[in-house]
Design a protein around this nucleic acid. Structure first.
Length: 465
RNA sequence: UCCGAAGUAGCUCAGUGGUAGAGCAGGCGGCUGUUAACCGCCUGGUCGUAGGUUCGAUCCCUACCUUCGGAGCCA
Protein backbone atom coordinates (compact mmCIF):
# COMPACT_ATOMS: atom_id res chain seq x y z
CA UNK A 1 0.00 0.00 0.00
CA UNK A 2 1.62 3.23 -1.10
CA UNK A 3 1.37 6.10 1.33
CA UNK A 4 -1.01 9.03 0.86
CA UNK A 5 -0.58 12.60 2.02
CA UNK A 6 -2.60 13.29 5.14
CA UNK A 7 -4.48 16.11 3.45
CA UNK A 8 -5.85 13.61 0.92
CA UNK A 9 -6.92 11.20 3.61
CA UNK A 10 -8.69 13.92 5.57
CA UNK A 11 -10.46 15.49 2.61
CA UNK A 12 -11.07 12.80 0.00
CA UNK A 13 -10.72 9.35 1.56
CA UNK A 14 -13.91 7.37 2.05
CA UNK A 15 -14.81 5.70 5.31
CA UNK A 16 -13.90 2.05 5.01
CA UNK A 17 -10.95 2.73 2.72
CA UNK A 18 -7.59 1.29 3.72
CA UNK A 19 -4.68 3.71 3.43
CA UNK A 20 -1.13 4.23 4.59
CA UNK A 21 0.33 7.50 5.83
CA UNK A 22 3.84 8.62 6.71
CA UNK A 23 4.74 11.47 9.00
CA UNK A 24 5.79 12.59 12.46
CA UNK A 25 4.13 12.32 15.85
CA UNK A 26 2.74 15.46 17.47
CA UNK A 27 1.21 13.87 20.56
CA UNK A 28 0.39 10.48 22.00
CA UNK A 29 -2.48 9.93 24.42
CA UNK A 30 -3.10 6.53 25.99
CA UNK A 31 -6.38 5.07 27.04
CA UNK A 32 -6.54 2.09 29.32
CA UNK A 33 -9.63 1.10 27.38
CA UNK A 34 -7.02 -0.58 25.26
CA UNK A 35 -5.94 2.00 22.71
CA UNK A 36 -3.73 4.98 22.15
CA UNK A 37 -4.32 8.12 20.13
CA UNK A 38 -1.59 9.48 17.91
CA UNK A 39 -1.69 12.87 16.24
CA UNK A 40 0.37 12.59 13.05
CA UNK A 41 1.40 15.38 10.69
CA UNK A 42 3.20 15.31 7.37
CA UNK A 43 3.11 19.00 6.42
CA UNK A 44 0.45 18.61 3.76
CA UNK A 45 -2.15 20.55 5.73
CA UNK A 46 -2.59 22.28 9.04
CA UNK A 47 -4.59 19.55 10.77
CA UNK A 48 -2.84 16.43 11.94
CA UNK A 49 -4.67 13.15 11.49
CA UNK A 50 -5.78 11.21 14.57
CA UNK A 51 -4.63 7.64 14.52
CA UNK A 52 -6.28 5.15 16.84
CA UNK A 53 -3.82 2.43 17.85
CA UNK A 54 -5.56 -0.58 19.43
CA UNK A 55 -3.68 -2.58 22.06
CA UNK A 56 -4.08 -5.65 19.86
CA UNK A 57 -1.32 -4.39 17.59
CA UNK A 58 1.57 -6.88 17.90
CA UNK A 59 4.05 -4.09 18.72
CA UNK A 60 1.67 -2.09 20.95
CA UNK A 61 3.61 -2.56 24.17
CA UNK A 62 7.04 -2.70 22.57
CA UNK A 63 6.70 0.27 20.24
CA UNK A 64 3.45 2.23 20.39
CA UNK A 65 3.65 2.90 24.14
CA UNK A 66 7.22 4.17 23.68
CA UNK A 67 6.29 6.66 20.94
CA UNK A 68 7.02 10.27 21.86
CA UNK A 69 6.62 13.62 20.15
CA UNK A 70 8.80 13.80 17.06
CA UNK A 71 9.00 10.11 16.16
CA UNK A 72 8.71 9.31 12.44
CA UNK A 73 6.12 6.67 11.58
CA UNK A 74 4.54 4.72 8.76
CA UNK A 75 0.99 3.71 9.60
CA UNK A 76 -1.56 1.78 7.61
CA UNK A 77 -5.12 1.12 8.54
CA UNK A 78 -8.73 1.82 7.82
CA UNK A 79 -10.37 5.22 7.54
CA UNK A 80 -13.23 5.27 10.06
CA UNK A 81 -15.72 7.82 11.33
CA UNK A 82 -14.42 9.27 14.57
CA UNK A 83 -16.22 8.43 17.79
CA UNK A 84 -14.70 11.46 19.48
CA UNK A 85 -15.18 15.16 18.99
CA UNK A 86 -12.64 17.29 17.16
CA UNK A 87 -12.37 15.34 13.93
CA UNK A 88 -14.76 13.66 11.56
CA UNK A 89 -12.55 10.84 10.40
CA UNK A 90 -9.57 9.07 11.87
CA UNK A 91 -7.28 6.22 10.96
CA UNK A 92 -7.74 2.92 12.82
CA UNK A 93 -4.23 1.50 12.66
CA UNK A 94 -3.59 -2.04 11.46
CA UNK A 95 0.15 -1.62 11.50
CA UNK A 96 2.47 1.00 12.97
CA UNK A 97 6.12 1.11 12.08
CA UNK A 98 8.38 3.53 13.89
CA UNK A 99 10.77 4.61 11.14
CA UNK A 100 12.83 6.93 13.32
CA UNK A 101 12.87 7.17 17.10
CA UNK A 102 13.55 10.28 19.17
CA UNK A 103 16.68 9.12 20.92
CA UNK A 104 16.24 11.23 24.05
CA UNK A 105 12.63 12.39 24.51
CA UNK A 106 13.51 14.41 27.58
CA UNK A 107 15.76 16.74 25.67
CA UNK A 108 13.91 16.75 22.34
CA UNK A 109 13.48 20.49 21.84
CA UNK A 110 9.97 20.33 20.40
CA UNK A 111 7.25 19.74 22.92
CA UNK A 112 3.49 19.52 22.43
CA UNK A 113 2.92 22.98 23.83
CA UNK A 114 3.24 26.55 22.77
CA UNK A 115 6.84 27.64 22.35
CA UNK A 116 7.97 31.24 22.06
CA UNK A 117 8.97 32.39 18.61
CA UNK A 118 12.34 33.41 20.07
CA UNK A 119 12.96 29.87 21.26
CA UNK A 120 11.93 28.38 17.94
CA UNK A 121 14.54 30.53 16.22
CA UNK A 122 17.18 28.84 18.35
CA UNK A 123 16.12 25.45 16.99
CA UNK A 124 15.73 26.44 13.39
CA UNK A 125 16.35 22.90 12.16
CA UNK A 126 13.41 21.51 14.13
CA UNK A 127 10.95 24.38 14.11
CA UNK A 128 9.47 23.36 10.71
CA UNK A 129 7.68 20.63 12.70
CA UNK A 130 5.61 23.14 14.64
CA UNK A 131 2.12 24.30 13.78
CA UNK A 132 3.16 27.89 13.28
CA UNK A 133 6.20 27.35 11.06
CA UNK A 134 4.38 24.70 9.07
CA UNK A 135 1.59 27.17 8.45
CA UNK A 136 4.10 29.88 7.47
CA UNK A 137 5.75 27.47 5.05
CA UNK A 138 2.48 26.72 3.28
CA UNK A 139 1.49 30.40 3.20
CA UNK A 140 4.87 31.39 1.81
CA UNK A 141 4.61 28.74 -0.87
CA UNK A 142 1.05 29.73 -1.78
CA UNK A 143 2.06 33.38 -2.15
CA UNK A 144 5.16 32.56 -4.18
CA UNK A 145 3.21 30.35 -6.55
CA UNK A 146 0.51 33.00 -6.88
CA UNK A 147 3.18 35.54 -7.83
CA UNK A 148 4.37 33.33 -10.65
CA UNK A 149 0.83 32.54 -11.82
CA UNK A 150 -0.12 36.21 -11.78
CA UNK A 151 2.73 37.22 -14.04
CA UNK A 152 2.60 34.13 -16.22
CA UNK A 153 -1.10 34.65 -16.96
CA UNK A 154 -0.30 38.21 -18.06
CA UNK A 155 2.58 37.35 -20.38
CA UNK A 156 5.46 38.32 -18.08
CA UNK A 157 8.74 36.43 -18.27
CA UNK A 158 10.61 35.46 -15.13
CA UNK A 159 14.17 36.71 -15.57
CA UNK A 160 16.87 35.26 -13.31
CA UNK A 161 18.96 38.30 -12.54
CA UNK A 162 22.40 37.71 -11.06
CA UNK A 163 23.15 37.30 -7.39
CA UNK A 164 26.73 38.44 -7.83
CA UNK A 165 27.28 41.88 -9.28
CA UNK A 166 30.30 43.97 -10.15
CA UNK A 167 28.26 47.11 -9.92
CA UNK A 168 28.59 48.90 -6.62
CA UNK A 169 26.26 51.57 -7.89
CA UNK A 170 22.94 49.77 -7.63
CA UNK A 171 21.71 52.28 -5.12
CA UNK A 172 21.28 52.53 -1.42
CA UNK A 173 22.34 49.87 0.99
CA UNK A 174 25.57 48.35 2.23
CA UNK A 175 26.61 45.35 0.15
CA UNK A 176 28.29 42.06 1.01
CA UNK A 177 31.64 41.55 -0.64
CA UNK A 178 32.23 38.43 -2.74
CA UNK A 179 35.85 37.38 -2.98
CA UNK A 180 38.14 34.37 -3.13
CA UNK A 181 41.19 36.36 -2.09
CA UNK A 182 43.11 35.15 0.96
CA UNK A 183 42.07 37.60 3.65
CA UNK A 184 45.20 36.84 5.64
CA UNK A 185 47.44 37.59 2.69
CA UNK A 186 45.83 40.14 0.39
CA UNK A 187 47.53 41.01 -2.91
CA UNK A 188 48.40 44.69 -3.11
CA UNK A 189 48.89 47.13 -5.95
CA UNK A 190 51.92 49.35 -6.16
CA UNK A 191 49.84 52.02 -4.47
CA UNK A 192 49.20 49.70 -1.57
CA UNK A 193 45.55 49.06 -2.26
CA UNK A 194 43.96 45.63 -2.48
CA UNK A 195 44.58 44.29 -5.98
CA UNK A 196 41.17 43.04 -7.05
CA UNK A 197 42.47 42.24 -10.52
CA UNK A 198 43.76 39.06 -8.88
CA UNK A 199 40.35 38.23 -7.46
CA UNK A 200 38.07 35.58 -8.96
CA UNK A 201 36.23 37.96 -11.28
CA UNK A 202 39.19 40.24 -11.87
CA UNK A 203 37.36 43.09 -10.20
CA UNK A 204 35.49 43.91 -7.04
CA UNK A 205 32.22 42.00 -6.73
CA UNK A 206 29.35 42.03 -4.27
CA UNK A 207 25.96 40.45 -3.63
CA UNK A 208 23.08 42.23 -5.32
CA UNK A 209 20.78 44.59 -3.45
CA UNK A 210 18.23 44.62 -6.27
CA UNK A 211 17.64 42.96 -9.61
CA UNK A 212 15.95 46.01 -11.04
CA UNK A 213 18.78 47.50 -13.11
CA UNK A 214 19.51 44.14 -14.66
CA UNK A 215 15.89 43.29 -15.34
CA UNK A 216 15.43 46.61 -17.15
CA UNK A 217 17.71 45.26 -19.87
CA UNK A 218 15.35 42.35 -20.49
CA UNK A 219 12.36 44.66 -20.25
CA UNK A 220 13.81 46.52 -23.25
CA UNK A 221 13.49 43.32 -25.29
CA UNK A 222 10.80 41.12 -23.70
CA UNK A 223 8.40 43.96 -22.80
CA UNK A 224 7.03 42.35 -19.64
CA UNK A 225 9.44 40.78 -17.16
CA UNK A 226 9.94 40.24 -13.46
CA UNK A 227 12.57 39.07 -11.05
CA UNK A 228 11.89 36.91 -8.04
CA UNK A 229 14.91 35.88 -6.06
CA UNK A 230 17.14 36.50 -3.08
CA UNK A 231 18.46 39.94 -2.33
CA UNK A 232 21.12 40.99 0.16
CA UNK A 233 21.69 43.98 2.40
CA UNK A 234 24.69 44.28 4.69
CA UNK A 235 23.05 46.98 6.79
CA UNK A 236 23.48 46.53 10.51
CA UNK A 237 19.74 46.57 11.01
CA UNK A 238 18.48 45.00 14.21
CA UNK A 239 14.74 45.18 13.80
CA UNK A 240 11.80 42.86 13.41
CA UNK A 241 11.34 44.06 9.81
CA UNK A 242 14.82 43.57 8.32
CA UNK A 243 16.88 40.67 7.07
CA UNK A 244 20.33 40.51 5.51
CA UNK A 245 18.98 38.04 2.95
CA UNK A 246 15.40 38.26 1.73
CA UNK A 247 13.34 37.57 -1.37
CA UNK A 248 12.09 40.34 -3.57
CA UNK A 249 9.67 40.51 -6.49
CA UNK A 250 10.35 43.20 -9.08
CA UNK A 251 8.21 43.45 -12.23
CA UNK A 252 9.24 45.78 -15.05
CA UNK A 253 6.82 46.85 -17.76
CA UNK A 254 7.76 48.51 -21.07
CA UNK A 255 5.68 51.18 -22.78
CA UNK A 256 4.16 52.01 -19.43
CA UNK A 257 3.80 55.03 -17.19
CA UNK A 258 3.31 55.49 -13.47
CA UNK A 259 -0.45 55.04 -13.67
CA UNK A 260 -0.01 51.67 -15.35
CA UNK A 261 2.53 50.76 -12.70
CA UNK A 262 0.10 51.58 -9.90
CA UNK A 263 -2.64 49.59 -11.59
CA UNK A 264 -0.31 46.61 -11.93
CA UNK A 265 0.54 46.86 -8.24
CA UNK A 266 -3.14 46.94 -7.29
CA UNK A 267 -4.01 43.97 -9.50
CA UNK A 268 -0.98 42.10 -8.18
CA UNK A 269 -1.76 42.51 -4.51
CA UNK A 270 -5.39 41.58 -4.96
CA UNK A 271 -4.44 38.50 -6.95
CA UNK A 272 -1.86 37.02 -4.59
CA UNK A 273 -3.80 37.70 -1.41
CA UNK A 274 -7.01 36.51 -3.03
CA UNK A 275 -5.29 33.27 -3.95
CA UNK A 276 -4.04 32.93 -0.40
CA UNK A 277 -7.51 33.43 1.08
CA UNK A 278 -8.77 30.81 -1.32
CA UNK A 279 -6.09 28.18 -0.82
CA UNK A 280 -4.94 28.40 2.78
CA UNK A 281 -8.08 28.76 4.82
CA UNK A 282 -6.74 26.26 7.35
CA UNK A 283 -3.52 28.13 8.02
CA UNK A 284 -5.13 31.57 8.01
CA UNK A 285 -7.69 30.35 10.54
CA UNK A 286 -4.80 29.32 12.76
CA UNK A 287 -3.10 32.71 12.45
CA UNK A 288 -6.39 34.41 13.15
CA UNK A 289 -6.87 32.38 16.31
CA UNK A 290 -3.37 32.42 17.77
CA UNK A 291 -1.39 35.23 16.16
CA UNK A 292 -3.48 38.09 14.78
CA UNK A 293 -7.29 38.20 15.02
CA UNK A 294 -7.40 40.76 12.20
CA UNK A 295 -5.35 38.99 9.56
CA UNK A 296 -8.14 37.43 7.50
CA UNK A 297 -10.31 40.51 7.66
CA UNK A 298 -7.37 42.65 6.61
CA UNK A 299 -6.73 40.46 3.57
CA UNK A 300 -10.33 40.18 2.43
CA UNK A 301 -10.84 43.92 2.77
CA UNK A 302 -7.76 44.59 0.68
CA UNK A 303 -8.88 42.15 -1.99
CA UNK A 304 -12.33 43.74 -2.21
CA UNK A 305 -11.28 47.37 -1.99
CA UNK A 306 -10.64 49.89 -4.71
CA UNK A 307 -7.18 51.37 -4.20
CA UNK A 308 -7.19 55.14 -3.88
CA UNK A 309 -4.56 57.25 -5.59
CA UNK A 310 -3.34 60.53 -4.20
CA UNK A 311 -0.49 62.88 -4.98
CA UNK A 312 2.37 63.17 -2.51
CA UNK A 313 1.63 66.89 -2.29
CA UNK A 314 -1.95 66.08 -1.34
CA UNK A 315 -0.75 63.52 1.21
CA UNK A 316 1.36 66.20 2.88
CA UNK A 317 -1.62 68.52 2.94
CA UNK A 318 -3.74 65.84 4.62
CA UNK A 319 -1.03 65.19 7.18
CA UNK A 320 -0.57 68.88 7.93
CA UNK A 321 -4.23 69.32 8.73
CA UNK A 322 -4.39 66.15 10.84
CA UNK A 323 -5.85 66.66 14.27
CA UNK A 324 -3.36 64.32 15.88
CA UNK A 325 0.34 65.04 16.28
CA UNK A 326 3.26 63.11 14.86
CA UNK A 327 6.65 62.34 16.31
CA UNK A 328 8.20 63.54 13.06
CA UNK A 329 6.96 66.94 11.85
CA UNK A 330 5.39 67.13 8.41
CA UNK A 331 6.38 69.48 5.62
CA UNK A 332 6.64 69.25 1.85
CA UNK A 333 9.89 67.53 0.99
CA UNK A 334 10.09 65.05 3.83
CA UNK A 335 10.04 61.32 3.32
CA UNK A 336 6.93 59.84 4.86
CA UNK A 337 7.59 58.07 8.15
CA UNK A 338 5.82 54.88 9.09
CA UNK A 339 3.49 56.82 11.41
CA UNK A 340 2.51 59.09 8.51
CA UNK A 341 1.85 56.20 6.17
CA UNK A 342 -0.24 54.37 8.72
CA UNK A 343 -2.28 57.49 9.44
CA UNK A 344 -3.00 58.08 5.76
CA UNK A 345 -4.07 54.56 4.93
CA UNK A 346 -5.78 53.66 8.22
CA UNK A 347 -7.44 56.87 9.33
CA UNK A 348 -7.80 59.15 6.32
CA UNK A 349 -8.29 56.85 3.34
CA UNK A 350 -9.35 53.82 5.41
CA UNK A 351 -8.06 51.50 2.73
CA UNK A 352 -5.16 50.86 0.37
CA UNK A 353 -3.76 53.93 -1.36
CA UNK A 354 -1.03 54.64 -3.89
CA UNK A 355 0.83 57.84 -3.07
CA UNK A 356 2.36 59.23 -6.24
CA UNK A 357 4.95 61.76 -7.40
CA UNK A 358 7.44 62.29 -4.57
CA UNK A 359 10.02 65.06 -4.23
CA UNK A 360 13.04 64.21 -6.34
CA UNK A 361 15.51 64.74 -3.50
CA UNK A 362 14.26 61.79 -1.46
CA UNK A 363 14.10 59.28 -4.31
CA UNK A 364 16.56 57.27 -6.41
CA UNK A 365 18.41 58.59 -9.46
CA UNK A 366 16.63 56.32 -11.96
CA UNK A 367 13.13 57.64 -11.25
CA UNK A 368 11.59 59.74 -14.00
CA UNK A 369 11.66 63.52 -13.56
CA UNK A 370 8.24 65.12 -13.77
CA UNK A 371 7.57 68.28 -15.77
CA UNK A 372 7.39 70.36 -12.58
CA UNK A 373 11.11 69.77 -12.08
CA UNK A 374 10.47 69.12 -8.37
CA UNK A 375 8.99 65.66 -8.27
CA UNK A 376 9.70 62.26 -9.77
CA UNK A 377 7.26 59.61 -10.95
CA UNK A 378 7.53 57.41 -7.86
CA UNK A 379 4.72 55.63 -6.08
CA UNK A 380 4.31 53.80 -2.80
CA UNK A 381 1.34 51.55 -2.13
CA UNK A 382 0.22 51.91 1.47
CA UNK A 383 -2.08 49.41 3.14
CA UNK A 384 -3.83 49.40 6.52
CA UNK A 385 -1.97 47.44 9.12
CA UNK A 386 1.47 47.71 7.57
CA UNK A 387 2.05 51.01 5.78
CA UNK A 388 4.21 50.75 2.70
CA UNK A 389 3.95 47.35 1.06
CA UNK A 390 5.10 48.21 -2.46
CA UNK A 391 7.44 50.88 -3.80
CA UNK A 392 7.84 51.62 -7.47
CA UNK A 393 8.39 54.21 -10.12
CA UNK A 394 8.39 55.09 -13.76
CA UNK A 395 12.03 54.99 -14.86
CA UNK A 396 13.86 57.88 -16.47
CA UNK A 397 14.06 56.85 -20.13
CA UNK A 398 15.61 60.12 -21.41
CA UNK A 399 19.40 59.97 -21.47
CA UNK A 400 20.00 63.66 -20.88
CA UNK A 401 17.65 63.71 -17.92
CA UNK A 402 19.19 60.54 -16.51
CA UNK A 403 22.70 61.97 -16.80
CA UNK A 404 21.58 65.13 -15.08
CA UNK A 405 20.16 63.11 -12.20
CA UNK A 406 23.30 60.99 -11.93
CA UNK A 407 25.43 64.10 -11.78
CA UNK A 408 23.13 65.91 -9.36
CA UNK A 409 23.32 63.02 -6.91
CA UNK A 410 27.11 62.93 -7.02
CA UNK A 411 27.23 59.66 -8.93
CA UNK A 412 29.53 58.94 -11.88
CA UNK A 413 27.98 58.20 -15.22
CA UNK A 414 30.88 56.02 -16.29
CA UNK A 415 29.67 53.57 -13.61
CA UNK A 416 26.38 53.21 -15.49
CA UNK A 417 27.60 52.41 -19.00
CA UNK A 418 25.28 49.56 -19.90
CA UNK A 419 22.38 51.11 -18.04
CA UNK A 420 22.78 54.33 -20.03
CA UNK A 421 22.99 52.32 -23.26
CA UNK A 422 19.38 51.27 -22.74
CA UNK A 423 18.52 54.97 -23.14
CA UNK A 424 20.69 55.34 -26.22
CA UNK A 425 19.34 52.41 -28.19
CA UNK A 426 15.58 52.23 -28.59
CA UNK A 427 14.60 53.67 -25.26
CA UNK A 428 10.94 53.54 -24.20
CA UNK A 429 8.98 54.68 -21.18
CA UNK A 430 8.88 51.90 -18.62
CA UNK A 431 8.00 51.35 -15.02
CA UNK A 432 8.16 48.78 -12.28
CA UNK A 433 7.94 48.15 -8.58
CA UNK A 434 9.40 46.04 -5.82
CA UNK A 435 7.82 44.03 -3.06
CA UNK A 436 9.58 42.10 -0.32
CA UNK A 437 8.09 38.62 -0.09
CA UNK A 438 8.67 38.42 3.66
CA UNK A 439 6.88 41.71 4.29
CA UNK A 440 3.90 40.34 2.37
CA UNK A 441 3.91 37.18 4.47
CA UNK A 442 4.04 39.25 7.64
CA UNK A 443 1.10 41.23 6.37
CA UNK A 444 -0.89 38.09 5.65
CA UNK A 445 -0.10 36.23 8.86
CA UNK A 446 0.33 39.00 11.40
CA UNK A 447 3.65 37.54 12.53
CA UNK A 448 5.56 40.42 14.04
CA UNK A 449 9.13 39.28 13.46
CA UNK A 450 10.34 38.84 9.89
CA UNK A 451 12.75 36.13 11.04
CA UNK A 452 9.78 33.82 11.51
CA UNK A 453 8.50 34.03 7.94
CA UNK A 454 11.70 32.91 6.17
CA UNK A 455 13.01 29.37 6.62
CA UNK A 456 16.55 30.31 7.57
CA UNK A 457 16.83 33.94 8.65
CA UNK A 458 20.05 35.77 7.97
CA UNK A 459 20.61 38.88 10.08
CA UNK A 460 23.47 40.55 11.95
CA UNK A 461 25.15 37.84 14.10
CA UNK A 462 22.64 35.27 12.84
CA UNK A 463 23.65 32.79 10.16
CA UNK A 464 22.96 29.52 11.94
CA UNK A 465 21.53 26.43 10.35
C1' U B 1 24.87 51.83 15.22
C1' C B 2 21.82 54.42 19.23
C1' C B 3 18.01 53.92 23.36
C1' G B 4 15.40 50.53 26.65
C1' A B 5 14.43 45.55 28.75
C1' A B 6 15.81 40.59 29.73
C1' G B 7 19.17 36.20 30.39
C1' U B 8 17.22 30.91 36.80
C1' A B 9 15.62 22.90 35.24
C1' G B 10 14.71 20.23 28.25
C1' C B 11 10.55 24.47 27.65
C1' U B 12 7.51 28.76 30.06
C1' C B 13 8.37 31.43 34.30
C1' A B 14 8.35 32.69 39.96
C1' G B 15 11.91 33.87 43.76
C1' U B 16 15.50 35.49 48.05
C1' G B 17 22.24 39.05 50.54
C1' G B 18 22.87 32.91 53.71
C1' U B 19 24.08 28.23 47.08
C1' A B 20 16.55 27.80 44.65
C1' G B 21 10.73 26.56 43.44
C1' A B 22 5.97 25.89 40.11
C1' G B 23 3.59 24.30 35.57
C1' C B 24 4.70 21.59 31.20
C1' A B 25 8.17 17.83 29.21
C1' G B 26 10.66 12.97 30.76
C1' G B 27 10.28 8.14 34.10
C1' C B 28 6.92 5.02 37.21
C1' G B 29 1.87 4.10 38.85
C1' G B 30 -3.55 5.19 38.54
C1' C B 31 -7.78 6.59 35.50
C1' U B 32 -10.21 7.78 31.00
C1' G B 33 -12.68 7.20 23.05
C1' U B 34 -8.67 10.70 24.27
C1' U B 35 -8.19 16.03 22.05
C1' A B 36 -1.66 20.87 24.58
C1' A B 37 -6.23 14.83 28.66
C1' C B 38 -6.39 14.26 34.06
C1' C B 39 -4.44 12.55 39.29
C1' G B 40 -0.14 10.84 42.48
C1' C B 41 5.09 10.01 43.07
C1' C B 42 10.08 10.60 41.07
C1' U B 43 14.11 12.52 38.12
C1' G B 44 16.10 17.16 36.73
C1' G B 45 19.63 23.54 37.85
C1' U B 46 28.08 25.11 38.72
C1' C B 47 20.75 30.87 38.52
C1' G B 48 24.58 34.14 30.59
C1' U B 49 30.33 35.03 31.05
C1' A B 50 34.34 37.56 33.68
C1' G B 51 35.64 40.68 37.51
C1' G B 52 34.32 43.59 42.05
C1' U B 53 31.74 44.79 46.97
C1' U B 54 30.67 41.45 51.20
C1' C B 55 31.99 36.89 56.43
C1' G B 56 28.90 35.11 52.34
C1' A B 57 25.96 36.72 45.75
C1' U B 58 21.81 33.68 41.85
C1' C B 59 20.15 38.50 44.21
C1' C B 60 24.16 44.63 44.79
C1' C B 61 28.05 47.13 41.28
C1' U B 62 31.12 47.15 36.56
C1' A B 63 32.38 45.20 31.87
C1' C B 64 31.37 41.87 28.09
C1' C B 65 28.25 38.34 25.31
C1' U B 66 23.46 37.05 23.59
C1' U B 67 18.31 37.81 22.84
C1' C B 68 13.92 40.85 22.60
C1' G B 69 11.45 45.71 21.78
C1' G B 70 11.94 50.78 19.83
C1' A B 71 14.77 54.28 16.53
C1' G B 72 17.64 55.00 12.05
C1' C B 73 17.99 52.44 7.14
C1' C B 74 14.72 50.24 4.15
C1' A B 75 11.98 45.58 1.39
Amino acid sequence: MSARRIVEVLTTAQVGQRVAIQGWIRTRRDSKAGLSFLAVHDGSCFEPIQVVAPAELPNYASDVLRITTGCAVTISGEVVASQGKGQTVELRAESIEVVGWVEDPETYPMQPKRHSMEYLREVGHLRPRTNVIGAVTRVRHALAMAVHRFFDERGYFWVHTPIITASDAEGAGQMFRVSTLDLANLPRTAAGEVDFSQDFFGKETRLTVSGQLNVETYCMAMSKVYTFGPTFRAENSNTRRHLAEFWMIEPELAFADLAADAQLAEDFLKYIFGALLDQRKDDLAFFEKFVDPECQKRLSQLVQSKFERIEYTEAIRLLEKATRSFEYPVSWGIDLQSEHERYLTEEVIKGPVAVMNYPKDIKAFYMRMNDDGKTVAAMDVLAPGIGEIIGGSQREERLDMLDARIAAMGLHKEDYGWYRDLRRYGTVPHAGFGMGLERAIQYATGLENIRDVIPFPRAPRQADF
